[in-house]
Design a protein around this nucleic acid. Structure first.
Lengths: 336, 336
DNA sequence: CGTTCAATGGTAAACGTTTTCCATATGGTT
DNA sequence: AACCATATGGAAAACGTTTACCATTGAACG
């Protein structure tokens, strides 16, 4: 391994000069600069990341913790965020918390131990993820994305879940669907909670039925399938099933179809997130599109500005969703 | 930040003893050990990762580079590998090469700079990914997974792609399909190349038509759709479309359906990998299941044993695939 | 010409561990 | 009791950077 000292000897300057050229912390005369660069090139010098981090106490790295790496929605956020921060010279460490606050806090600790300069957190639980925040001990900035933590003043960027669900319910109602059912996820997840409450309020607002017809599970295809079984077994089918995300909707639809129940003819089904999968299944799924690009850019730039030390007020940004109507909700119009 | 020195003072011992207790590198008397542990606990001591790594030149971390983080097949491999190595006390750094050898080599360099103890590489290109291997300079062990690099003696774990495709072609032939088409990915990808060659050989072996009817693009839904357009426009449809992976198959099927061509009734379509998506689309996709769990376990354990210094001969492990028959290939039997 | 100031270069002290090398204590064997 | 082997503790030297501090230079200015 060649060190700064080897380079200094080769270039005939001091280690300080080499360091200054490599890290660009202070100006050096063009002549010495060139000598250093040539020597470094010749010796194939590579800066030792750990020595540098140890001394500087900063790593040009941000960590990101997501609940489930296999969920395409999170992956899209990760990809976009990585794009933004990479342009600023930062690297990204990605961790999966398996939707478990205990794992999450371990991951956060591991990131802190590696002295990441900041963290983007999509938290596992709106109450118990508080531990993860405490683990940070205000040592570095942290922004929450998509999901939030209760009663804690933290930057947060998320879609307006309530509005999204209202748009869905209004859309279903406008096509004559009155009797609805909601298939959601655990209440511990802030987005799940928000979508649930919005569903209840929206159904009440349109004077529909089923505001209390609710099943809660997890954000997964398997749970959707399970809930589908329950629905299929009912003597009297609802007009529409509002699902808390697209994965659930896929499970519900697959299950209903397997039982000979037609979607959308017999029941309309909707999702949330607009992952690519919505376009690949048949029928295509009506859903709420999150402005992923905008969310990722905002989250990244807030984090970066906090890392840079600028920025003060806590940001709580709710971005607007967009409804995407596909076949899964286009059943016969019962009222027009 | 509390250091080893603070702990030593609190416990009334030397820093050496503290270090030995924390890192467990040498035995210490139970009495001092307890004193150290108590002091560490009391002060909330956390080992400085960088100082440790700088001194030890090892990090208990392995890096993994995959071509595309949004491809569910890779994600499954990542999840399984993380499970195995975590049980051994290793952390995983995941990177996305965007299927670009230039990005890949940057990622590998970043991993080396962070002194990962080993790398799992799913390489972008069977020729140009050679650069990535050179970047490692034999400093640390590296195993390739799924895809391979030409003419280079490196551990490799992969499915028997040729056998998988033969199983598919035989299955299609057994149901009476004679005229076939292949929709593959770039030849620079070893798996794509292997599947292509196997397709040609298998079609020849069964005396079918279409051994030369080949379209090459990328492992993506979009490419599948594009290839589907070409197929749909032909005056004379083939009996079956063999796709090089499931994403392509999804694209082909969606496209054909959108043009009023029925799958499987008019054309049978098959995939490769058996990602979850195959079960969620309609018709379900006939495909080749890779033994992901076995592959991940083997790759991880080979890497870990190389890191530990045991292990010598280069491993080139080809594991057996399994055919999963679903609706997409179950068209009318033309010969029986 | 003397003074001041900015620009640049070098020396050496951090950063927080791990580990080598010694010193001492302990226990077991003749 | 003498000896040896082993276990344990501590001092200090690494690991490779960055940076505080000082020294030197040369230019600008009166």
């Amino acid at each position: 391994m060649t060190t700064i000292e080897d380079v200094a000897r080769e270039a005939g300057v001091s280690v300080a000069s080499v360091s200054r050229v490599i890290s660009g912390t202070r100006s050096v005369r063009p002549k010495t600069k060139n000598a250093v660069l040539e020597a470094a090139e010749k010796l194939g010098y590579q800066k030792n990341y750990f020595a540098s981090a140890l001394r500087r106490r900063s790593t040009n790295t941000v960590g990101m913790v997501v609940p489930h790496i296999a969920n395409p929605f999170f992956i899209e956020l990760v990809e976009r965020i990585e794009n933004v921060i990479q342009a600023d010279g930062f690297d990204l460490f990605l961790c999966d918390s398996r939707n478990d606050p205990a794992v999450e806090v371990r991951r956060v600790r591991a990131l802190i131990a590696r002295q990441v300069d900041g963290i983007v957190l999509i938290c596992a639980d709106e109450m118990r993820s508080r531990e993860s925040i405490l683990a940070v001990e205000n040592k570095i900035p942290i922004v929450t994305l998509d999901r939030s933590i209760k009663d804690i003043a933290l930057d947060r960027i998320a879609v307006d879940n309530g509005l999204g669900i209202r748009m869905i319910v209004d859309h279903l109602a406008s096509r004559g669907n009155r009797r609805m059912t909601f298939v959601g996820a655990e209440e511990g997840i802030s987005t799940a909670q928000a979508r649930l409450e919005a569903y209840q309020a929206a159904v009440a607002a349109i004077g529909g039925e089923g505001g209390g017809d609710i099943m809660l599970g997890s954000y997964s295809v398997d749970w959707g399938w399970e809930a589908g079984l329950n629905i299929a077994d009912r003597p009297h089918l609802p007009d529409a099933v509002v699902c808390a995300n697209d994965l659930i909707a896929v499970g519900v639809i697959r299950c209903l179809l397997s039982r000979g129940i037609r979607v959308p003819d017999d029941i309309a089904v909707t999702g949330f997130d607009d992952i690519a999968l919505c376009r690949y299944v048949d029928p295509g799924i009506t859903t709420v599109r999150q402005p992923i690009d905008l969310m990722a850019r905002e989250a990244a730039s807030i984090l970066l500005s906090r890392i840079a030390g600028t920025h003060n007020a806590v940001v709580n940004l709710l971005v607007g969703p967009e409804i995407v109507i596909r076949q899964s909700s286009c059943n016969v119009t019962k009222v027009s």
